[in-house]
Nucleic acid binder design. Structure first.
Lengths: 117, 117
DNA sequence: ATGGCTGTATTATGGCACTGATGCACCTCG
DNA sequence: CGAGGTGCATCAGTGCCATAATACAGCCAT
């Protein structure tokens, strides 16, 4: 009923993409490490290999992973920091203003919610 | 490419819905006032009447507007406050946790961004 | 070299959301 | 009563998403 912000009803390939990006930034996939194969991750996540490939696609285009055909995909050196910088920029430019307006309208102040939860 | 938070690539009926909700909360459509007709708003926004009707749909279901068939749709008394309360609850429960995690990962602190921009 | 692992390309299919065009049912006003 | 304004139902078209079944291309350890 509410196809909105919640990540629940989002395309699978985008959820995977976000999940992998988070893992890279957090160092769960360290630089130089090999990402799970499309088939392996597909099996683990109960998805289709091509869907996983689609999730990986963007990281290749951005040069954050190196593809060794027949071997696997490896996290490029400096990928974590570059990815974080890029995501931060996008967040501040595209997402935060809207979120801020929304909160203001709802009578919420980010400053009051720093530690809360 | 990124059907995500940015309101740019979101369904039209959802953008309209948000826009109308904001107008109600802000009092641009006061209680008791008649909302723009589906055709009028459609023409103004360059959208299809049915798309506008779909945007209005949810407000009817939630009892925030009263439909007088053949006449128009009117903002129910107390709609603004009820709407804001409901939106705030949804935001805090569904959206904010994810946003907070995301910001934390990106090295951003809501407290530092109260006035910024 | 061969088996087994990688990523990739191709094509087809089903489902679903979004948008659109048309026509109908209802009400108000002159 | 008729004209013009409402909302609403129905049907159709389009595109994206996800899946599937294969097949191909490259690498590596045995």
């Amino acid at each position: 009923m509410n196809p909105n912000r919640p990540s629940s009803n989002r395309p699978v390939y985008l959820k995977l993409r976000d999940q992998i990006a988070a893992a890279i930034i957090d160092g769960d996939y360290p630089e130089g490490a090999m990402l799970p194969s499309v088939r392996a991750l597909a099996a683990e996540q109960g998805a289709n290999p091509l869907t996983v490939a689609k999730a990986y696609q963007q990281f290749q285009n951005d040069g954050l992973v190196e593809v060794q055909r027949g071997v696997g995909m490896y996290v490029v050196k400096g990928a974590a920091e570059r990815l974080r910088a890029r995501e931060r920029e996008v967040f501040l430019r595209d997402e935060w203003p809207e979120i801020r307006n929304r909160m203001k309208r709802l009578g919420l102040d980010p400053a009051d919610m720093a530690i809360s939860t």
